[in-house]
Structures are given as structure tokens and as C-alpha cells.
Amino acid sequence: MNTEHLAYILEAYKCGSVNKAAKNCYISQSTLSSIIKNVEDEIGYPLFRRTRTGLSPTPEGEVFMTHAEKIIIERRNIQRIPESMAENNNLSIICARSAFVLQCFFDFKKHFPCENSHDAFLEAGLRENLRTVVAQKCRVGIMVLFERVIPKYIDLADQYNLDFKVLKRSIPASVMHAKTHPIAQKKEVTLADLAQHPFVADAHIDYDDTLAILGLPDKHNFLYICDRGTIYDAVRKGGYVSIGISIPASDAALLGCQCRPIQDAEPMAVAFIHSRNFQLNARENQFIRYLTQRLEENYPTVSHPS
């Protein structure tokens, strides 16, 4: 057994088909079938059940895939050691889709220009965010999440040797809607109001970590979209609403939208993750400080009298 064979087997697991996986891996179907059989013979138990519709993992196979994926990730990490240790000031960030964080990124680059930098800013759901940092495809992950799920992601980060630090708590969850949307006529917006209207969300969103917390059933009228521009179009022109942390009113106006707090929604937070295998470079530290400052300015902590 070698790590390349593990990668092929994982692809068969994800595809549920030897034929599809073989094409994706650029090997023959017979070669992949032989690899699976040889590994099964070596470990002494079957990984898959063969059915008319393709492959389905055995219970032992499910556990095997979990460990195999960690091995593949660590192989990538080993291959990228020189890259991770390189002295540079590039920003390599993956973020849960957030107009606020993206604007902070643009503003940071404007206020603190860096010549010859090769920066990257990707967007994905929370789990994909974590997987991307674990695989060292991005060095820093910015997570916008409900406070309720913070312990869950702290545990996941620890399992994969990541540092998890909360930058700001108690951020009101807000709804984004068109200026002409019926919700715009309400003095206050509640979760019950959201349930009355179609909802647009990022295609990579994690239902249990987001929409379920809002009390929206999985049979609700959802539209899942992969890019930010189309989400804005769905809000402006399609009568959809979306949620997240608010953006300044001036920015929302440029988009033809409004952002308003949801009165009875649970609070949200912003956190960041990075691998414990390396230290943040000077510019990464500077960006995290800048983002923290902007979060404090835009979502000031409200002190309640005792």
C-alpha cells in the first residue's frame, strides 16, 4: 500500500464508481479495481460493497476513508514544507463568504500596499474553509459563524493541529434584502419574518451550522448559489433574502440592498484559524490586527448595566 493508492481509493469512495474515479485519476478501470482488491487483501477486510449502481463503503470502509484522508492531507503538508517555511509576505486567505471581510481585505491592501505581493482570497463554507487550511492550500482561514458552533470548530481545529482564535463575538445576525422587499416595511425583523420568504444561500453553506440555527426547515424555499454577484442579483431582483453579518449602509446602498439586524437571532462571531506548523508572517499578523480593529469599530461591544 502506498499513499498514491490511498488517493485513488478515496476518489472511488467520493465518486461511488470505479469507472468515474479511474477517469478522474487518469488510470484504467482494471488498474483501479486491482489496487482496491490488493489493499483489501493486505488489510484483511473489504472497503466497498459492489452494487448495480456502483460502490458503497462498508462500515469498516467508512472508518478507513477517514484515516486515509488524514494521511493524504499529511502527505501534501510534507510536500509543502519548503513553501510554508518560505520567507514572504503574501496573504493567502480563505473566508466564509462575507462582504464585510472581503471589503476589509480590499481596504487593507489599499492602506498597506505591498510591492511584488501575490495575494489570494478564496471563499467557501466553514468545513471547506477548515479543510483548505489543513491541506495548506491557504495559510489563514477566516470563519464567520454562529457563536453556538464555536466549540464544535475549536474541537475540529484541534484535531487537525490548527489554532482557532475568536476575533469578535456578539455580532448581530443581519438579513440582506432589496429596498422594495416586503421586509423593508417592517419596523423590526424576526426569524418568523425570514420563514415567510425565499432564501438565497452560498452553495457551500453548512445547513446544520447556519440555516438550522435560524429555524429554517430543510424543505424551505432555498436557492443555493456559488458566486457573490448572483447572490446579490437574487436579493435585488429575485425577491430573496440572505443572512450574515451586516455591511455598512453606504456599501449596501451601492448594491441596491439593505441590511437590518434580526431581533431574535443568535449572535454571530468572526474567528481565524491557521496551522500550528508555522508562524504567521508579518503581513498576516498585520491583516489580523486590522480586521480585529475594523470588527471592533463596526460591531462595538454593548455593555449592559448590572
Rank of each mutant, 00 (worst) to 15 (best):
H197A: 08
V235T: 01
F222E: 05
A124N: 02
L216W: 03
K14W: 08
R283Y: 14
D163I: 10
D119S: 07
L214W: 05
E128G: 13
L191C: 06
N2M: 06
A252W: 13
E74H: 07
C15G: 08
R283D: 12
D202T: 08
T53A: 14
K37Q: 07
I288T: 07
M268W: 00
E11P: 02
G239D: 12
A21E: 06
G16K: 08
G16V: 09
G44V: 14
M268I: 00
S17L: 06
V270I: 14
V18L: 12
R236V: 04
P82A: 08
A135V: 03
E74Q: 04
I72L: 15
R75G: 04
A271D: 01
R131M: 13
E4H: 03
L145S: 05
E297C: 00
N129Q: 07
S117F: 00
Q159N: 01
V149M: 08
E123V: 11
K186L: 15
H304T: 09
F48V: 12
C25Q: 13
K219R: 10
A96Q: 09
F108G: 00
I171K: 12
H67I: 03
R148N: 04
M85D: 13
Y290K: 02
P57H: 04
E74I: 02
K110C: 04
E4A: 13
V39F: 13
P248W: 09
Q279K: 12
N2L: 04
T53M: 08
A120L: 10
S17T: 07
H204N: 12
F164A: 00
S250G: 03
G239T: 04
G141P: 00
I43S: 10
R50T: 15
A120Q: 14
L280C: 03
I213Q: 08
L194C: 08
Y232W: 10
K219M: 05
S303T: 07
A249W: 01
T58K: 12
I213K: 03
R75M: 03
V270S: 00
G229T: 14
H220I: 03
H118N: 14
L295R: 12
Q103H: 08
V63F: 13
I171E: 06
N221P: 07
Q29F: 04
I35G: 11
A178M: 04
K152I: 00
N77D: 08
Y290N: 01
A21Y: 02
R50A: 05
E128M: 09
F64H: 05
Y26R: 12
A21S: 06
V144M: 12
G141I: 10
A253M: 05
I93H: 06
A203D: 10
N2F: 01
I247Y: 00
K109D: 10
N88D: 15
S30F: 11
I81L: 10
Y160C: 14
I247G: 02
S98H: 09
L211T: 04
K70N: 07
Y299P: 08
N90D: 15
A173T: 15
L47R: 09
Q293L: 08
M176H: 04
V144N: 00
A203F: 06
